[in-house]
């Protein structure tokens, strides 16, 4: 019983982290039509910035905020000065994001070294929550809560605000959006910063669970890709559902069949691609 509860919680916490990562990835892909391959590196950069921020501020949530802001600023610079001049050349943009991801990964290695750096959970959440004779890791519950709150906030942003309406318009029909006077260029930067901020903050929040280590980027990027392939491009609901499916498969796969966890990840992807190439909730195919 304990095993199933703990693994379920693990998978829910990982799902929450994946959502923070994949929501931005999916929105950027949906709006700008580019697969931002730096996204895994932004997550890792966030985790490392969290390590440094925790030396300056004592609070993990504050560190997550700081990490998110710095990564958002970095993302904004990349979008404005590197991706923008390549507008219209989607392949070039994707290759550039790949190049930048290598640069970021190597820079992190230079700055923070090659050993994994653990990040402590806030003291108040370190003790497990005990109900009856079953212990729940409190921090993982908190991560799940943050992800759900973020999902609701993003949903409200997308459905209830002017900005969200513009983003939806851009995802559905870029040329019409431009034609009716939506400042698409500014929208690109906004969404890119938003996605980067979510990934960066996600890296810090994920720190107590995964810690910061070289290779975190290449561990997370494929998971984000699989989430988006499953859920569909440009759909928040798709990113949300896809994150929890992917996390559940990955967590239970790792626990029950540790050798083949990655192979098992591949199965839902085959099913979705075979029967619904645009993903479960995609508005259009990738």
């Amino acid at each position: 019983m304990q095993f199933w509860i703990v693994q379920t919680l693990n998978s829910l916490a990982l799902g929450g982290l994946l959502f923070l990562l994949a929501a931005g990835f999916s929105l950027i892909f949906g709006l700008m039509r580019i697969a931002n391959l730096t996204h895994g590196s932004l997550f890792m950069l966030g985790a490392y910035l969290g390590v440094t921020a925790l030396k300056l501020v004592p609070n993990l949530w504050l560190a997550a905020l700081l990490g998110g802001l710095v990564v958002a600023a970095f993302g904004g610079l990349v979008e404005r000065f590197i991706l923008r001049p390549l507008a219209g050349n989607a392949l070039g943009q994707v290759l550039v994001t790949l190049g930048i991801s290598f640069i970021v990964a190597d820079t992190c290695l230079i700055v923070w070294g090659g050993d994994p750096i653990p990040i402590a959970a806030p003291a108040s959440l370190q003790r497990p929550l005990v109900v009856g004779n079953i212990a729940f890791p409190a921090y993982r519950l908190a991560v799940l809560g943050i992800a759900i709150v973020t999902a609701i906030a993003l949903h409200l942003l997308m459905e209830r605000t002017r900005l969200g309406a513009m983003i939806r318009a851009g995802v559905d029909d870029m040329q019409m959006a431009r034609a009716v006077g939506i400042p698409v260029s500014r929208l690109f930067t906004t969404v890119f910063c938003l996605g980067a901020a979510l990934a960066g903050a996600g890296g810090v929040i994920g720190g107590p669970i995964m810690s910061a280590y070289p290779g975190l980027d290449t561990d997370m990027l494929p998971l984000a890709l699989i989430v988006v392939i499953l859920g569909g491009v440009g759909s928040l609901l798709g990113a949300f559902v896809g994150s929890f499916i992917t996390a559940a498969i990955y967590t239970f796969g790792s626990a029950l069949l540790p050798d083949l966890a990655y192979v098992i990840l591949f199965l839902p992807m085959i099913f979705v691609i075979a029967f619904r190439p645009r993903g479960l909730f995609g508005r259009k195919s990738a």
Binding site: A35, L91, P222, V263, L265, S285, A286
Partner: peptide, 22 residues
């Protein structure tokens, strides 16, 4: 090849990363 363009790129990347992880 259910996808082309960037979808194809993402799927090939995801598949090869699955092999790498394995």
């Amino acid at each position: 090849l259910r996808a082309t363009g960037l979808g194809f790129l993402m799927i090939t990347l995801a598949l090869s990363q699955v092999l790498w992880g394995t």
